[in-house]
């Protein structure tokens, strides 16, 4: 799974102007969706589809959590899983150079892929941090 699929959408980026003051660092993807809709870069139909896909991925993660042994979890557990899902998606959309580019990706990538790529980025960041830590220890 490649993380860089920007070639196809580069020309669409110039058509979108995002008000950065409306974006939130926490729940970045959700604020991006709202802002994308406001400026007309994301249709309400697409936003509805994205919400549906987020719920589908959440359901898959909950099933993974219960290992298929239970069909229900506490609301607290479901919310924790939701927070981790949003966090991983935020990491992916934040890795683009600008929010306009991120919006283009939101329009053509599935939420399942966005989440998977976010998780992969987090794994990479974790490995990088570990390596940096080892290098720091050597300096001491």
């Amino acid at each position: 799974m490649g993380l860089d699929n920007t070639q196809d959408c580069s020309r669409s980026v110039s058509n979108i102007i995002i008000d950065r003051s409306r974006l939130k660092r926490n729940n970045y993807i959700l604020s991006l969706l709202q802002e994308g809709q406001r400026v007309g870069a994301i249709t309400s139909k697409k936003a509805y589809q994205i919400q549906g896909e987020i719920m589908q991925v959440l359901q898959q993660l909950i099933r993974k959590y219960t290992q298929g042994k239970s069909t229900s979890v506490t609301s607290e557990t479901a919310e924790d899983i939701m927070v981790s899902l949003i966090y991983a998606m935020d990491v992916y959309v934040l890795h683009f150079n600008n929010p306009e580019e991120a919006i283009v990706h939101l329009n053509f990538e599935s939420i399942k892929d966005i989440h998977a790529k976010g998780v992969e980025l987090l794994r990479q960041y974790y490995e990088d941090a570990k390596q940096l830590y080892q290098e720091m220890k050597k300096i001491d």
Binding site: Q59, I62, R63, T71, S72, T74, S75, E76, T77, A78
Partner: peptide, 14 residues
């Protein structure tokens, strides 16, 4: 009941 017990369920298997 799910709301009262603060639970979320994905299907109707139960």
């Amino acid at each position: 009941v799910l709301r009262d017990y603060a639970r979320v369920e994905l299907g109707i298997e139960v």
